[in-house]
């Protein structure tokens, strides 16, 4: 595989196993994909599929057992020592988690959080930082009033926008969103989804969008990768995947989405038929 200049993220042969006593559990197995500038890849799967482990490896919270991650052609270092290396890592990949409460400092206003990120990344002039903070918040639809507020004074949707603005402040090559809209009310979720499609259009950032929700993935991404027990079942353009799902597991996921005329009985039958297939010592997911 060669990476052209527009490939931001290239992942090949990624593998992660966890051990409990003598038992070995393969969380992610031989995972490969790439994301180009302005591209968005959806990683779809249910609990235990390895999608969150993948997200954590992309930002260096977990170390892969095998395989490599290249960001703009440079390997993601296995260990990060010293300020320069940490800042470089931060510039490569940023993440937005499901619960912004846990990723924003409760004692610091949204504006000050972003100001701190900008200062850390070398924007020394106070007025420049203030202008850039305002610009970043405006980009996610937050104003002066939200900038001075503490996280707990904001609604869930506003907090998630603030978390996105904080990630964008670093100007990363790749932004990973791990179930970033799952906890939001549907009316607010739509606001954040529109924001993500604006960011894709305006910044050329590469998005890795981890989600269990196929409809949301269809809206945000142009490609989707379906994970099941750590393995890639299918990786195709998202419109194609949803209209002609090739793998029985993708078909099951699609059929499971509630809609009028939904037949949960046939879905649970198909699920039982599928289940024994690649079961290799997986501990209880939510099945």
């Amino acid at each position: 595989m060669t990476s052209d200049a527009r490939t931001l993220l290239q992942v090949s042969g990624l593998r992660k196993t966890y051990r409990t006593g003598k038992a070995e559990f393969v969380a992610v197995d031989d995972l490969s994909f790439s994301v180009r500038a302005g591209g968005a890849l959806g990683i779809v799967g249910e609990s235990g599929s390895g999608k969150t482990t993948t997200a954590r490896m992309l930002i260096g919270l977990e170390r892969p057992d095998a395989g490599r991650i290249l960001v703009q052609g440079e390997p993601l270092a296995a260990t990060v020592r010293g300020k320069a290396a940490r800042l470089a890592r931060a510039k490569a990949v940023q993440i937005v988690f499901q619960d912004p409460y846990l990723s924003l400092d409760a004692r610091i206003s949204i504006g000050a959080t972003i100001d701190g990120v900008l200062r850390l990344h070398g924007l020394t002039d106070r007025a420049d930082r203030a202008a850039r903070t305002k610009e970043l918040l405006a980009q996610v639809g937050l104003g002066e009033r939200e900038a001075t507020a503490l996280p707990r004074k904001l609604s869930g949707g506003q907090r998630q926008r603030a978390a996105i603005a904080r990630a964008l402040a670093v100007e990363p090559a790749v932004l990973v969103l791990d179930e970033a809209v799952s906890a939001l009310d549907v009316s607010v979720q739509a606001q954040v989804l529109n924001l993500l499609s604006d960011i894709r259009r305006d910044t050329g950032i590469g998005l890795v969008f981890v989600s269990h929700d196929l409809a949301v993935v269809r809206y945000v991404c142009d490609e989707a990768l379906v994970l099941y027990r750590g393995r890639t079942m299918e990786h195709r353009p998202v419109a194609d995947l949803l209209t002609h799902p090739g793998h029985p597991y993708t078909q099951l996921l699609l059929a499971s989405v509630p809609r009028p005329g939904w037949d949960p009985d046939s879905i649970s039958r198909r699920r039982r038929e599928l289940d024994p297939l690649p079961a290799a010592g997986a501990p209880g997911g939510r099945g």
Binding site: E46, S47, H212, D213, L252, L253, A255, S256, V257, P258, W262, P264, D265, I267, S268, R271, G285, R286, G287
Partner: peptide
């Protein structure tokens, strides 16, 4: 709400039956 989509279908099937 706390379950995967295919598990959701299973639970709804049981409740419906």
């Amino acid at each position: 709400t706390a379950l995967d989509v295919s598990t959701q279908a299973e639970i709804m099937a049981i409740l419906g039956r």
